[in-house]
């Protein structure tokens, strides 16, 4: 088994808490990894021999310390890379996840950590969330990481603009109207269709949902000032 297969296994075991599942372990992993149960069984035995995990009686597996730290490191790399691709480069989440799956095995932890620092330096926070509708579990489930945008808040909230994600159209107009990093804005109205009316620099600006979904913001505590 090559290194990237090994890392994929350990990553999947951690992410889907595949430990202690007894007899269904093989089928469970088979569903996640898109391989048949026999192959999985053989692979697990190889991993056991390499000291990454222990196959217990009844079929449950548990990770050794080394296996766990390898898996966690890969998972962390994946999250950072995917976040970088979607939030900084504006790639679509599916491609971002797929590419992250490839690169996570090749890139060193130190390099990926540097990317992570860059992200937090530009005010981008990555976190897992939103396993809502439309979520399709494929080979590897999407590890969503995104940060807050105008679209996530409700009427009356006062927000501070942090940045802008790439996307088609509208960038210059937003900047010209004063929606720039550091600016405080207030959501005046939010329609059920998710179009919003924000107050910025003394005027009210109507913004379509797809654009409101690209303006990265953080919420400020409510005050009466604005």
């Amino acid at each position: 088994m090559d290194q990237s297969d090994r890392e994929d296994y350990l990553e999947a075991v951690i992410m889907h808490s595949a430990e202690g599942r007894g007899a269904e372990t093989l089928n469970f992993l088979s569903g996640l990894m898109d391989r048949d149960a026999d192959q999985i069984g053989a692979d697990l035995r190889v991993l056991e021999k390499e000291g990454d995990l222990v196959i217990e009686e009844g079929g449950s597996i548990s990770l050794t310390e080394e296996g766990r730290s390898t898996g966690e490191s890969v998972l962390k790399k994946h999250r950072i890379l995917e976040c970088f691709f979607t939030e900084m480069l504006g790639m679509d989440p599916d491609t971002a996840s797929k590419e992250a799956c490839e690169i996570e095995h090749a890139a060193s932890e130190a390099t990926v950590n540097k990317i992570g620092n860059l992200l937090s330096g530009s005010g981008v926070r990555c976190r897992g969330r939103r396993h809502g509708p439309g979520f399709v579990e494929t080979h590897f489930p999407k590890k969503e990481c995104r940060f807050d945008v105008i679209d996530d808040f409700s009427e009356g909230d006062i927000l501070k603009v942090v940045g802008m994600r790439h996307g088609p159209g509208g960038g210059r107009r937003l900047i010209d109207l004063g929606i720039i990093p550091g600016e405080e804005i207030r959501i005046v109205r939010r329609l059920p269709g998710r179009s919003v009316l924000v107050s910025v620099k003394g005027s009210e600006v109507a913004i379509s949902p797809e654009i409101a979904g690209r303006v990265v913001v953080e919420k400020l505590p409510d005050t009466d000032s604005l």
């Binding site: 509208g170 937003l174 109207l177 600006v205 109507a206 913004i207 379509s208 949902p209």
Partner: peptide, 10 residues
């Protein structure tokens, strides 16, 4: 083509 959204001052 790409879809743009509305940015319109009231």
């Amino acid at each position: 083509g790409e879809r743009y959204g509305m940015i319109l001052e009231m």
